[in-house]
């Protein structure tokens, strides 16, 4: 008995001494049972308490921008699933406006490419895009690394997240961002509880009817429980693409003109406005577009021009049922999760 007591005391004592290292313990990332296998390899960059904390600090810090005025979180706001509500495009540096509607930052672990044109093929490489964009943060990633190295707070945070390194380097910064973004998993909406047969997953008649319609008419592109197939498509919001040619700007392939990546519909009720240019302010106007507003052009998606008819036939009732369903994709636990909000 005595021996056991001493042993226990020793354990407690060790644990107390070990507090310094505690930040480096791995955190379990939520991998929902109704999702496929993640695309991102978490084994190469496991999320740790300290890495997540560092990534979050960076996400909320304007130090990333040229004149320390713009943080990631300015255009990616937690309560709207890290999108920019009510802004077709967002304000960047010097009062300039960005080119496209700020996308939601959620479930990135399952995405094969990022941004509306899929120009970035790996989650680790996301952060340096807005940093370098002249309309957003307009800063060189190398200078950001230099600034972080001079900053005592970041010296401390980096040391905790990446022990054994003398200075901060760019790949670590990118990995820290990934650790924060990896945690932004949204899969606790009423719909999720419904498909996982969990408590709180009851859908009403209108929502059920909407779900059925959705499966028939929308899930070709908004596929799986990620609600996107990640494919680039022209969904007929314009008849000509002169300013922004979408995927073409990345691929240089003429077939890609006017194509944009299918966005996920998770939390869609709180991520207004919609489309790459923020053209539609409400879900009603989006459905009206698909029902009656689709514009033809050479690269229009064939799913939106079946048997020579433009759009997806949807009655008013069907549209309101669909909207009722889409609202069940709002994940209150995610958008209110204090772990992801600024301290």
């Amino acid at each position: 008995m005595n021996k056991f007591l001493i042993f226990s005391l020793l354990v407690v004592w060790f644990a107390a001494c070990n507090k310094e290292d505690k930040g480096n313990e791995n955190i379990v990332v939520f991998l929902p049972s109704n999702f496929p296998k993640p695309v991102y390899n978490l084994e190469l960059n496991p999320v740790t308490e300290a890495g997540f904390k560092l990534g979050k600090q960076l996400f909320y810090d304007p130090i990333l921008s040229r004149d320390s005025t713009i943080a990631c979180a300015d255009c990616h706001i937690s309560f709207s699933a890290f999108s920019h509500p009510d802004h077709a495009t967002s304000h960047g540096i010097d009062g300039l406006f960005g080119k496209r509607n700020a996308p939601a930052v959620q479930n990135l672990l399952w995405q094969t490419a990022f941004f509306w044109d899929g120009g970035v093929p790996d989650m680790d490489l996301i952060s340096i895009n807005p940093i370098q964009n002249p309309l957003e943060m307009d800063e060189s990633p190398a200078r950001v690394v230099w600034k972080l190295n001079r900053n005592p707070l970041y010296q401390k945070l980096f040391k905790a997240a990446f022990p054994g390194k003398d200075s901060i380097d760019g790949p670590q910064m990118m990995q820290a961002f990934s650790q924060f973004m990896a945690m932004l998993v949204s899969a606790n909406s009423r719909y999720d509880k419904h498909v996982r047969n969990e408590q709180g997953g009851d859908l009403n008649a209108s929502e059920i009817a909407g779900l059925q319609l959705f499966k028939e008419k929308c899930s070709t592109c908004h596929a799986t429980d990620l609600f996107t197939d990640g494919v680039y498509r022209n969904n007929g919001i314009l008849s000509e693409f002169t300013n922004d040619k979408g995927r073409f700007e990345v691929s240089s392939l003429p077939d890609d003109i006017g194509k944009f990546k299918t966005p996920s519909l998770r939390n869609v009720a709180v991520t207004q406005p919609y489309m790459h240019n923020g053209k539609f302010k409400t879900l009603e106007s989006v459905l009206e577009h698909y029902a009656t507003g689709v514009k033809d052009s050479p690269t229009l998606d064939p799913a939106l021009k079946q048997h020579g008819v433009l759009g997806i036939p949807l009655s008013q009732d069907e549209q309101s049922n669909l909207i009722a369903f889409l609202k069940t994709l709002t994940d209150e636990t995610f958008i209110r999760d204090e772990r992801f909000q600024q301290n």
């Binding site: 190469l44 960059n45 941004f115 044109d117 120009g119 970035v120 093929p121 790996d122 680790d124 490489l125 340096i128 895009n129 940093i131 370098q132 964009n133 060189s140 990633p141 190398a142 950001v144 690394v145 380097d169 760019g170 790949p171 670590q172 910064m173 990118m174 990995q175 990934s178 700007e249 990345v250």
Partner: peptide, 23 residues
């Protein structure tokens, strides 16, 4: 990111030789 060291580091050795928007 972990495999991008030296001249392949977009924030270091490859600065100016990397497109972040079209990675």
């Amino acid at each position: 990111a972990a495999e991008r060291t030296g001249v392949l580091d977009p924030t270091g050795g490859a600065a100016g030789m990397y497109w972040s928007w079209n990675a």
